[in-house]
């Protein structure tokens, strides 16, 4: 086992390479998920805060924009 971790004497180069790769990939994933969660929360708060009568109209407006984006 110790031999495996020694990597033929090159442990000081090999393990940092893999560690950095893992760090970048996990870091990007975590940052992405965090951003996604916070935006989902913001969106929910925005949609929840409006009075129900106007809310329907707003949602229609959002769908309209989405459709416009689609046509463009």
């Amino acid at each position: 086992m110790a031999e495996f971790f020694a990597m033929g004497g090159y442990a000081a180069y090999i393990w940092p390479s893999y560690a950095l790769t893992a760090l970048v990939m996990v870091g990007l994933l975590v940052a992405t998920l965090k951003g996604l969660r916070s935006r989902e929360a913001t969106l929910k708060a925005l949609e929840g805060s409006r009075p129900p009568r106007r809310r329907a109209r707003r949602e229609a407006a959002v769908h309209e924009t989405a459709a416009e984006m689609g046509e463009g």
Binding site: L28, L29, T32, L33, G35, L36, R39, E40, T42, L43, L46, E47, R50, R58, A61, V62, T65
Partner: peptide, 23 residues
Amino acid sequence: SVVLLRLKSEILARKIQTLRLND
């Protein structure tokens, strides 16, 4: 998989922006 998540996040950001503008 990460780009799909990020795209979703960007779409939500656009939605938030539209809602705020409407408000």
